[in-house]
Design a protein around this nucleic acid. Structure first.
Lengths: 151, 151
DNA sequence: GAGTAAATGAGACTCACTCTCAGTATGCGC
DNA sequence: GCGCATACTGAGAGTGAGTCTCATTTACTC
């Protein structure tokens, strides 16, 4: 299945390599979590990861799942998204450039959007309001091309 | 203090009037919560409201605070914001037009921004990605003019 | 003033997430 | 290959925002 995908397989490899580069140990639980997370294109919660690993017969403690996901998010491999119910969900960030996400309400897939025009517009508005922007959050919620096609 | 501000006093009155118009009862707890919330220009949590009312000697149950805030948010008087830690915070929405928020990291104040150019840009990007936008979330985080001035 | 239905308060409950600490396993030097 | 230091892990208790239930109260209508 997804693990055989050459793109996501490479991504898994890249993440593990970077972890090691930065002095983090390549432990079994970390490899299992990265292996599960890397191929995913939709959003997932920490609990999903714990449950799915458990279903595959891999036992990883809850605390370890939270810690590892936090680590991956801090290193920029995962993007933290606020779910409607207030809990965290995550999505894999394939590239490191600044970008935004469009989340499909039907399938949960997350598309990465590059929008330099938007950045300029945000700067303009901020300047107009005399507001110094340190960071911004933009998320689109809607329907992806695949789900629209199947309706 | 803030309650004597003619603008926020008017806002409190408007909210209560609209509640009544829509068939909701004007109970003591609701009036107390609206009275506390209406003058605020920064963000606050449900717990803040409960604590502050309690500090003023007004006893309102936690469940009632959550219910009333939810009601006010559903009616559009409050805007629900996801805090970094995943918990909900709220801010008063003075006007009903679609707008975005800029939150000051120093003082917590929330400015409302109208940005029709931004909306157009979002539509353009979505069209480019063939993504049907149902909703979008944009929040700027930074420093307001007042806090920048005092540095 | 009586009736009724909405609203309230108390408190138990849920659930994501954190903390602690003893035990384990990784990676490095030899 | 071996031993060591220490980063990492797992178990499980703890935390705190938010929800639910249900008996009681209170605002509005007639």
């Amino acid at each position: 299945m997804a693990a055989s995908n050459p793109h996501t397989g490479a991504r898994e490899h890249v993440i593990l390599e970077r972890l090691a580069d930065q002095g983090h140990r390549l432990t079994g639980p970390r490899q299992a979590i990265v292996g599960y997370v890397a191929p995913r294109t939709d959003t997932f919660s920490a609990q999903d990861v714990a449950d799915q690993l458990h279903a595959r017969g891999i036992h990883v403690g809850r605390a370890t799942v939270f810690r590892t996901i936090d680590l991956l998010a801090d290193l920029g491999f995962l993007h933290r998204i606020q779910n409607d119910d207030g809990y965290h969900r995550y999505t894999v960030c394939a590239d490191e450039e600044h970008h935004h996400h469009a989340r499909c309400v039907d399938c949960g897939a997350v598309l990465a959007l590059h929008a330099p025009g938007l950045e300029r517009e945000i700067d303009r508005i901020a300047q107009e309001a005399d507001f110094q922007v340190l960071d911004h959050i933009l998320e689109l919620v809607g329907r992806c091309p695949l789900c629209r096609g199947s309706r």
